[in-house]
Simulated assay, not measured.
Amino acid sequence: MGLIEVFRKRFLLNLLVHKELRVRYRGSILGMIWSYAKPATQFLVFYFAIGVFMQMNRNIENYIVYMFAGVVIINYFSEAFGNCTRSLVGNQDLVKKIYLPRELFPCSSVIVAIIHFLPQVAILIIGALVMGWRPGVTNIAAVFAGFAIVTVFALGLGLLGAALNVLYRDTENFVDLILMVVTWASPVLYRTHMVEDTLGSGWLMTVYNLNPLTPAVELFHYGFWSATEGITDPVPPHLVMWSVIALAVSFLFLVIGEATFRHFDGRFAQEL
């Protein structure tokens, strides 16, 4: 049972994904085109508002690529984690009436988040190419590594959040508060060395780096921003080490999330 059972129920998983997408775009004329229009607009707004008007391009070369690379991966985490948390409550009729592995609902929410993540990456790639993006093998590998870390981390937290949200509906609001600060809790709009300059290299900096989103964002920076024209910044120190630790922490949260989900699984239909 559990997550392993999800792989055996791929047909049901596919149906849930299509259901979520149909509900999301019901009555929409443009449909999935909005998945491209929104990040493209966001990219242009960031370019002019922050890069040009606030002159951040003077402080960080190709700042728009640097920032948007972080924004894209954080947007993915936010959608995956938030939708996972609401997945059981949002599908309560199915949970109460049909027996199926309940992990299908959080997993389908992650897949929907991936579907919306891909257009954002496409816009990021186009913007990076304009800035002279010439990636090597290690840059591409870093992007996939960052994606893997965030996927595992978001699913683990999402399983935990979905289970708790059935029992305590305040969980959904608490998760929304967390998602409000994740952009500032990782180096999306600023450089990591700015944090170290303030916190020093002691235990506070270690705690900052233990957040899996921090190495994941830096991996996206290395994958996209560092490979653009004119960037000569070195790889953040110990990025490989912190990335491995981030993946381990993410899997730990996945184990905790799945264990909590299975523990309360028998109460879901009754509580809903």
Score class of each variant (00 low, 15 high):
3 L>H: 01
4 I>M: 08
4 I>R: 12
7 F>W: 13
7 F>E: 05
11 F>S: 14
12 L>V: 00
15 L>E: 12
19 K>F: 11
19 K>I: 10
23 V>C: 02
23 V>G: 02
24 R>Q: 05
24 R>E: 09
26 R>Q: 14
29 I>V: 15
32 M>I: 13
35 S>C: 01
36 Y>G: 03
40 A>R: 10
42 Q>K: 08
44 L>A: 15
47 Y>M: 15
48 F>E: 06
48 F>S: 09
49 A>K: 11
50 I>C: 10
52 V>A: 07
58 R>Q: 15
59 N>R: 13
61 E>S: 08
61 E>L: 11
62 N>Q: 10
66 Y>D: 01
70 G>M: 10
70 G>F: 11
71 V>N: 03
72 V>C: 09
77 F>Y: 14
78 S>C: 07
78 S>K: 13
79 E>H: 04
84 C>D: 02
85 T>Y: 01
90 G>T: 07
91 N>C: 01
91 N>K: 00
91 N>Q: 10
94 L>P: 00
96 K>V: 06
98 I>D: 05
99 Y>W: 12
101 P>K: 04
101 P>E: 06
102 R>I: 02
108 S>Y: 09
112 V>N: 06
112 V>K: 05
118 L>A: 13
120 Q>W: 03
120 Q>L: 00
123 I>V: 15
126 I>A: 15
129 L>A: 15
131 M>S: 14
132 G>V: 13
133 W>S: 10
134 R>A: 12
135 P>M: 04
136 G>N: 10
138 T>K: 12
139 N>A: 12
140 I>Y: 10
142 A>I: 11
144 F>S: 03
145 A>T: 15
145 A>Y: 14
146 G>Y: 07
147 F>D: 02
147 F>I: 10
148 A>E: 02
153 F>I: 07
156 G>A: 11
157 L>Y: 01
158 G>Q: 08
167 L>P: 06
168 Y>I: 13
169 R>V: 07
170 D>E: 14
176 D>T: 06
178 I>S: 04
179 L>S: 03
180 M>T: 13
180 M>W: 05
185 A>T: 09
186 S>H: 04
187 P>C: 06
187 P>D: 07
188 V>I: 12
188 V>C: 12
189 L>Q: 12
189 L>N: 10
193 H>P: 01
194 M>G: 00
195 V>G: 03
195 V>M: 07
196 E>P: 02
198 T>E: 07
200 G>I: 11
201 S>R: 14
202 G>W: 05
203 W>H: 05
205 M>R: 06
206 T>H: 14
207 V>R: 03
208 Y>T: 01
209 N>I: 00
209 N>K: 14
210 L>T: 03
212 P>S: 01
213 L>I: 01
213 L>F: 00
214 T>Q: 00
217 V>I: 08
217 V>M: 04
219 L>T: 12
219 L>V: 06
220 F>Y: 13
220 F>E: 01
222 Y>T: 09
223 G>Q: 08
229 E>N: 13
230 G>W: 10
231 I>S: 11
232 T>C: 04
232 T>N: 14
234 P>Q: 14
241 M>D: 07
241 M>T: 15
243 S>K: 10
243 S>A: 14
243 S>L: 05
249 V>W: 02
250 S>K: 11
250 S>H: 14
255 V>K: 11
258 E>M: 07
258 E>T: 09
260 T>H: 01
260 T>K: 04
261 F>A: 08
268 F>D: 02
268 F>H: 02
270 Q>V: 08
272 L>R: 02
